[in-house]
């Protein structure tokens, strides 16, 4: 079973992901008593643990729960939170809730696109998987709009002019870690 998993993974991912720890998946399944009505919770936990939902893991869940894989695929693509590809190193999330929108979130988002040289209609991560850009429909910090979340940290009242320094700061900090 493990062999077939590995082969199917390599056909899908261009960038070879780290070897998948299926024990972690099994542990999470056990935590939820392998109950298929908890599928969404299982998927959320796996994504929290691994950062994304690797296809072999999904096939594994399908076998373990005896739940059709096409429905799992349907669920994973239905909910916006689930990701089938590994996350970028730095994630910039621009809140585009109504309050942020009327305060200029669009301009901030466009500035991010320009600075990262990204066209989010095509792809929302830079080719080197360094930076990712996405939007979220309101995080409930409306008083501080426009809000940007940089690697999980909230930044309020973001101006267009602050964007480039935000990107620099985030990417520099990781450069220091790896060196």
């Amino acid at each position: 079973m493990a062999a077939s998993d590995a082969s199917s993974a390599s056909t899908v991912e261009e960038i070879t992901p780290p070897p998948l720890d299926m024990n972690e998946v099994d542990r999470i399944l056990e935590q939820h008593h392998s109950d298929s009505t908890e599928l969404i919770a299982i998927l959320l936990d796996i994504q929290d643990a691994l950062g994304y939902l690797p296809i072999p893991a999904l096939r594994h869940i399908s076998e373990q729960l005896e739940f059709p894989i096409n429905e799992i695929y349907g669920i994973v693509t239905f909910y916006k939170h689930f990701k089938l590809t590994p996350p970028p190193k730095h994630q910039f999330t621009v809140c585009t809730g109504t309050a942020c929108h009327v305060r200029g979130a669009v301009q901030v988002f466009r500035e991010f696109e320009r600075q990262l040289n990204l066209d989010t209609t095509i792809c929302n991560t830079t080719p080197d998987m360094e930076c990712g850009l996405e939007t979220v429909n309101c995080i409930g910090a409306c008083a501080l709009g426009p809000v940007v979340i940089v690697d999980g940290e909230f930044k309020g009242q973001v101006k267009q002019t602050r964007v480039s320094s935000m990107i620099k700061k985030a990417t520099r900090s990781s450069g220091g870690d790896t060196e």
């Binding site: 809730g97 109504t98 309050a99 929108h101 429909n137 309101c138 409930g140 910090a141 409306c142």
Partner: peptide, 12 residues
């Protein structure tokens, strides 16, 4: 599941 953008009373 307070999805309306700009509403956050349930969360509070």
């Amino acid at each position: 599941d307070e999805g309306d953008p700009g509403a956050y009373m349930d969360r509070s």
